[in-house]
Structures are given as C-alpha cells and as structure tokens.
Design a protein around this nucleic acid. Structure first.
Lengths: 135, 135
DNA sequence: CTGTATCCTCTCTGATACTG
DNA sequence: CAGTATCAGAGAGGATACAG
C-alpha cells in the first residue's frame, strides 16, 4: 500500500466511470472510516450511545467483552472522525461523558437498522450456515 | 457484569423482552456475522454485487486492492452466511459467478446506504479529523 | 474514575507459488 | 479462469500494571 503511482485506476473492462463514488478504489479515504464505524467494536460503541450519553465505565459494562484498551482506542477514533464528543467535567473524581454528534447520531441510526436487520435474520443465517457445513 | 448498582438494568435472566436483542452481549452470534458483512472487505464485496452478478476476477478488479486470498475467504464466509450464491458453470475454462441472495440483497442495500451516507459526510469527517489533530 | 503504557498472543493480510 | 497452500509481517486485541 501507499504506492504513490496508483491513482484511480483506469478500469479497462468495467467502463463504469458513471458509478457513484469510487468507494471501491484503494485510495478511498472513507474505507478507513467505514472500518471505524463498522469494525468489531465501532458499531457496538456507536449503538450503545444511541439512547443516551454514557461514561467510560458505563460503556464498558454495556459493551460486554470489550477491554479498557479497545474501548479507549475505539472512542478516540470515533471522536477524531467527528462521530463522538468527549466531554470532561472538572470534578473529583473525574467524570467523562461520551455522546454522539449529529453526524454520529445519523450514522448510529443506520448502523442500528443494519444490526436489527441482521438480528431478525439470524434464523436464516444459521440455517444457511448449517446447510453449508453439511456439505 | 453482575454489578447490582448498574443503572436501570433489566433482570439478567429475562433480558430478552423489552430491549431489542442483546447485541451487546459477548455471546451474541450476530456479532460474528456483523463482522463478515461490515469488515474490511465484506461490505465492499456485497456492495460490488448489488448491481449484477460478477465472476471472481471481475470482482477482484472491481474491488481495488483486494488479494485473491482475501476475496476467496470473504466470499466463502458470505456464502456460508447465506448472503451470496456461488454458481459454477461446467465450462472450459471454468466460470464461476457470484450473486446475492434475497437476504444478501437486503443487507447490501443497507450497507450501501451506510456507505453513501459516509461518502457524503467525508467533508465533515475530514474537517473533524483536522480539528482533532490540530490539538 | 478515567484512562495510558507495556507486553504478549493471535488473527488478518498480502506476496508468492502452485493446482485443476 | 478460479482458486488453494504456505509463509512472514503487520496489526488487532487482551491482561496487567500504573498514572492523573
């Protein structure tokens, strides 16, 4: 990666310059962001913040199985991307609240729809998996 | 986890009534599937198949930067989950076509919406990133 | 309470080579 | 054309310890 010569490749066969955005291009910056919001922890973190702002350890309890390190890392990425706001209250003990930005709320909504769709399809998916494994 | 002081938690044993599904639970099987469809290559692969069935190398060209191995692996996972159909035509040279199942089509649609939303928000995201890095 | 730092493991990923 | 096999490096992820 990081090859400076590879700009948008001129696809010889798929003469589809008319395609929406070039999300399929290696250089597409949104790929990284997509990873942040849809990665193993990103989607769950954004979804967890959909209803209400939460503090660090509350988030940690909500997202079962996430480690401190990953939660911290995930939140930093989401904050940098502008999906999450980190608000520090100067109290003792320190109190940090995480909430969604308007953009984050929109994204989290879509994500939640996707998760809901997946959840309601898990029967189908499980059946497909069993059928596949039976072969 | 079993913290009695946690906010308005539902009863641990009967937690499958009020809240949608417990996607936040470590044991939730849909987490893995979510990884497949939203992982680095899954989302792009499903999106690439939205318009039309494609063959292996056509997909490879379409999804810039994916290796043979990763494409193969991604397609296998998506097929096992029941999102993608693999159809082998007994010709010479071999011709294998990948297409979406109805479920796959639905999921890919949601995914595409999410990607579209992200694409149209990249200005905001980039600005947020620069602001973040400036600190 | 809210994290960061460190170490260590394991998976993911890509390049290469090879099969049918 | 459509993959599989193998190997090595990069990065994700977790446990623990420690800091503000």
């Amino acid at each position: 990666m990081g090859d400076p010569t590879t700009e948008t490749t001129t696809d010889p066969e798929t003469a589809s310059e008319n395609y929406p955005p070039d999300v399929f291009s290696r250089a597409c910056t949104s790929r990284v962001v997509l990873q942040h919001i849809s990665g193993r922890w990103g989607a769950l973190t954004l979804s967890a913040l959909r209803d209400e702002p939460l503090r660090f350890n509350a988030l940690r309890r909500r997202i079962d199985g996430i480690s401190e390190k990953m939660l911290s890392q995930t939140l930093q990425a989401l904050e940098r991307d502008g999906f999450v706001v980190r608000e520090v209250q100067a109290t003792i003990p320190p109190r940090v609240e995480y909430s969604l930005t308007p953009l984050g709320t929109t994204v989290a909504g879509r994500l939640w729809e996707l998760i809901g769709l997946l959840e309601s399809s898990m029967d189908q998916v499980s059946a497909a998996q069993q059928a596949y494994d039976a072969r």
